[in-house]
Write a protein that binds this DNA or RNA. Structure first.
Length: 176
DNA sequence: GCTAATCTAATCACCTTCTAGGTGATTAGCACATTAGC
């Protein structure tokens, strides 16, 4: 069901943060490793970069930070409480939902059927075409793939193994 | 080797519409996710 017309599947080029940008980000991370959308936008403005890059930086930083830091009982009580409160606050501060029009959805679904793993250039082109940020297109594809996988699994479970009827739910894995 | 970019899976949160299903946003990743550019 998926065409072979795969566009150039390049990643986004690596962002090289300057020392000044890192200083801003690290300071913000130490204050709250789970910033809300407004904070991330503010940081993006301050560091002169995109909000989506700020989000990725915090994700990676949290992953590395958690690996390094051992559980420290001494700090747990008060600091955890602070972090919990900050986390709850940040969760109130999500990005507002993107409401796609039927035309936008049509374009997304068509692009997905052609290539469920579009590279940065393809995502950006599609984003321009439908008038949404590239980062929203990336999220849409992530959710779409994830729900396709889940749907496929659930069908396999009910049918006790793969069958022809779900062939359209199978799409190629990303290129190495 | 460090780390930005990317992935899946699980979960949260909101909307539509009637209580649950659909879906965008966010998060973790555990013998501590993987991939890949610099």
């Amino acid at each position: 069901c998926c065409s072979e017309t795969t566009p150039v599947n390049h990643r986004r080029s690596r962002t090289k943060f300057t020392q000044d940008q890192l200083k801003i980000l690290i300071k913000a991370f130490d204050k709250n490793p789970y910033p809300g959308y407004a904070t991330k936008q503010k940081l993006a403005l301050e560091a002169n970069t995109e909000e989506s890059r700020i989000q990725i930086w915090f994700q990676n930083r949290r992953a590395r930070h958690q690996k390094k830091s051992e559980p420290d009982e001494d700090l747990e009580s008060s600091q955890d409480q602070d972090h919990l409160e900050e986390e709850i606050q940040s969760r109130e501060d999500r990005r507002s939902r993107t409401n796609y029009t039927s035309l936008q959805l049509h374009a997304l679904i068509e692009a997905f059927s052609n290539n469920p793993y579009p590279g940065f250039d393809s995502r950006e082109q599609l984003a321009k075409e439908i008038g949404v940020p590239e980062s929203r297109v990336q999220i849409w594809f992530q959710n779409r793939r994830s729900r396709f996988h889940a749907q496929r699994k659930s069908i396999e479970a009910t049918q006790n193994g793969p069958s022809l009827s779900i062939s359209c739910l199978i799409f190629p894995e990303p290129e190495q």
